[in-house]
């Protein structure tokens, strides 16, 4: 039965208008911006575009990510003041994953800084692997946003397994570059790129982990037997 219009303001008729839904929308925007800044920075690093072309857009996007994080923090305080502790765990999770989304922006800026000083070469031994990795991470970030919105647990566990594999791939490449004779020009820049890619994946993973893990276990994925097993 349709609720009379005059009574609509009285209740949570549409959960889309609740405070938590508002935060979720802003968080979704953060993730979209995160993917955008990641694509821009890694394209600049890998030579897809000239760094100076994306500079303005990249820093504006980072600013917007920071603005959204502050907005979410304000919304959390207001939500807590109005609703008390009823939805406290959800608010704490939001606080934590908004920080993750903000850190993605920071790592992308670091990557952009590297792009500005690095000599690009498509003949580089690691070029193809990095491009491939970049595409996978970009896809993963888009998937993370969808998963966060749908809160699909089985899909989240599958995501965690795949993201864990990407992290291990980055670690292996870093070890390889540190141990072996340099097979690439400017190996430090390549090591840092793998490191930043790994960190972006780690923060994206933290966000998806929040779908299946309680608030006290967030950010400690490798110490949790359940999720550690699911990675193997």
């Amino acid at each position: 039965m349709e609720t009379p219009r005059m009574f609509r303001w009285l209740r949570r008729l549409d959960p889309e208008h609740s405070g938590l839904a508002r935060m979720k929308r802003h968080f979704g925007e953060m993730l979209e911006e995160g993917r955008h800044i990641f694509d821009a920075a890694s394209n600049a690093f890998l030579g897809g575009v000239d760094p100076s072309v994306v500079e303005e857009d990249l820093f504006a996007t980072d600013k917007n990510i920071n603005r959204l994080e502050r907005q979410i923090r304000r919304e959390i305080v207001i939500h807590g003041s109005v609703h008390g502790s009823t939805e406290l765990p959800q608010c704490l999770v939001m606080m934590s994953i908004a920080k993750d989304a903000e850190r993605i922006g920071d790592y992308c800026k670091n990557l952009y800084d590297l792009a500005a000083i690095r000599t690009k070469s498509k003949d580089d031994a690691y070029f193809k692997d990095l491009v491939d990795l970049k595409n996978q991470i970009s896809h993963l970030m888009a998937e993370a946003r969808g998963l966060y919105m749908s809160q699909d647990e089985p899909q989240a566990r599958d995501f965690m397994r795949r993201a864990g594999a990407l992290q291990r791939h980055c670690d292996a490449k870093v070890d390889e570059l540190l141990a072996a004779e340099p097979a690439t020009k400017q190996p430090a820049a390549t090591v840092l790129c793998y490191r930043y890619f790994k960190r972006v994946v780690a923060h994206t993973l933290n966000i998806v982990t929040s779908i299946v893990m309680p608030v006290d276990k967030l950010d400690f994925l490798d110490e949790d037997p359940e999720t550690r097993d699911s990675e193997e």
């Binding site: 303001w9 209740r11 208008h17 405070g19 304000r74 919304e75 207001i78 939500h79 109005v82 609703h83």
Partner: peptide, 15 residues
């Protein structure tokens, strides 16, 4: 309890 979300949105909007 009936108007909590309205209150929250109003406070968010008024900032």
């Amino acid at each position: 309890s009936l108007v909590a979300d309205r209150m929250e949105n109003a406070l968010n909007d008024v900032l």
